[in-house]
């Protein structure tokens, strides 16, 4: 493989990634539905190579308040996972998890932060389980860290912290939402080309 897979991955591989995202996030959405006892829908995942700025623009305005929980994946496929909820969704999510009346949570305190981190934990666990059982690859999530602030500040900082500073970031992105109480969350999985090679190999595909 040359120095850059960048955006030259063939459509077939992109489709495979999309399908992996679909299965993994589908599993994660089911876990969230169980946690909240609500119906959770998801958009068909998009798989694309984006710049840091494009990644931020996918979520919203750079000054918009968001909660972002991020964790690293260790093992065969090193990478990073991000969950980004806009302010309203983060607060609703906390209400639902705590069994509070909608609108009770006005700001994200320590308890709220823990709740959002816990969601990230559970969703990541189900996502990785789905992929592990498909590929027999070993993937272990780390403990999430969280920030609640301007989208631009939070997303750029989390990607830099994870070491993703290149122009081309491979991203599997989807939106999870709950209709009635409008929880909208973005999910990102970011990984490297070496990891992709392993992933495809585990699925019986070879990259050339």
């Amino acid at each position: 493989m040359g120095d850059s897979v960048d955006n030259k991955l063939s459509d077939t591989y992109m489709d495979v990634l999309k399908e992996i995202g679909n299965i993994g996030i589908g599993n994660a959405a089911t876990s969230l539905a169980q946690m909240l006892d609500k119906r959770i829908d998801m958009e068909v995942p998009q798989t694309k190579f984006v710049t840091l700025e494009e990644a931020m623009n996918l979520v919203g305005g750079l000054e918009e308040t968001v909660a972002c929980a991020t964790l690293r994946i260790e093992g065969d496929i090193p990478g990073q996972i991000l969950f980004v909820f806009n302010e309203k969704s983060a607060l609703h999510l906390v209400d639902m998890l705590m069994g509070l009346e909608k609108g009770s949570t006005k700001q994200l305190d320590d308890m709220g932060e823990s709740a959002v981190k816990e969601v990230a934990n559970v969703l990541t666990g189900s996502f990785l389980n789905a992929i592990s059982s498909m590929t027999q690859l070993n993937m272990v999530p780390t403990v999430p860290i969280l920030a609640y602030d301007m989208l631009g500040a939070v997303l750029s900082t989390s990607l830099i912290a994870g070491g993703y500073i290149e122009e081309n970031i491979l991203m599997i992105e989807t939106v999870l939402f709950e209709k009635q109480d409008y929880i909208k969350g973005h999910f990102f999985l970011i990984t490297e080309e070496l990891s992709l090679e392993k992933l495809f190999k585990a699925l019986g595909l070879t990259m050339n």
């Binding site: 991020t70 964790l71 690293r72 860290i145 969280l146 920030a147 939070v154 912290a161 994870g162």
Partner: peptide, 12 residues
């Protein structure tokens, strides 16, 4: 700024 709360030595 340091935006994130939580501990993870491998995050920069």
């Amino acid at each position: 700024a340091q935006m994130f709360s939580g501990k993870d030595d491998k995050f920069i």
